[in-house]
Design a protein around this nucleic acid. Sequence first.
DNA 1: AATTATGACAACCGCCACAAC
DNA 2: CGTTGTGGCGGTTGTCATAAT
Length: 317
Amino acid sequence: MEMMGMAMSPAMSSATAAAASEDEGDLRRGPWTVEEDMLLVDYIANHGEGRWNSLARCAGLRRTGKSCRLRWLNYLRPDVRRGNITADEQLLILDLHSRWGNRWSKIAQYLPGRTDNEIKNYWRTRVQKHAKQLRCDVNSKEFRDVVRHVWMPRLVERIQADAAAAGEVAAPAPVSAAATRSMSSPAGAMYLHHQQIPLAAGAMVVAPAASSEAYHHHGGGDTSCSEPSQAAVTMSPDDASSTLRSSAAAAAAEDEVIHGDVLSGSWSELLATTTTTIAATGGRDGAATAGLPDFDELGDFEDNLWSLEDIWLHQQC
DNA sequence: AATTATGACAACCGCCACAAC
DNA sequence: CGTTGTGGCGGTTGTCATAAT
């Protein structure tokens, strides 16, 4: 899987790429070759990015500017992260998607190093698959509720368990600073931090550099909002951790404004409920005894063919 | 062992917004 | 004002590896 990011991928596909393109005017299409990657990286290293059409020409690439831009942003950029989406990243994706829907680029801004394309792929391959297994539409209220009340609490539980296993948390407890510190990604740390913020917290939102501007969400429409500062995207992970944490707080506040009572309860309430249950029933197994299905990160859920009825039944136990 | 199905990732396409002319 | 070029976004398709049959 990580191999996909290695040099073998372009190399192996050069033949098909050439076959697919050589006759299309003088523009190449399809998978990139190692040579093309090197041309693009070298050129950007020397001249910077932007003006993609002229960049493509000047770099000697027989590609469209769009193709160059996409290749750079999604693959060649030095700070891009690929590979396993961690539990905390999943949690953040699920949360932000519940707020904003398919606004991948906006969601990606809160996951340092992750691209909108990768998040979109994650959603389509993993999340939609789960919805399919539950025989409900991924956009249905039923599925959203399952995500919110079942899947996400399980992710929180797993994150905490992992933190505990790492020796940073002595006892099962509501999300702690230690757990936050132990999160495997800046995004995750940010997320749990975000959960710690009382969500009455519209009042206590830190106005962050990356999101001090208000997002203007126009009802159900997908009208674009003002862009957060590029700093959020290009800063180092450490910086991003703190800045984006604040951004998430702002996002949470925005959520309060946008959705109001549309989404009953807040994430902090959900988290509190879940963690209280876990603590009261003794940690890792607590959620199970509380009746939550055994959602596990990534693949394990595939083995649990829960029907919606099962889930509701469990939830009501 | 060969074939088919599926998953994961990469890339393209069409549309839109915006700025420059 | 309209036109054009550019960049960004989300949806979709293509490609390859691996699992399942």
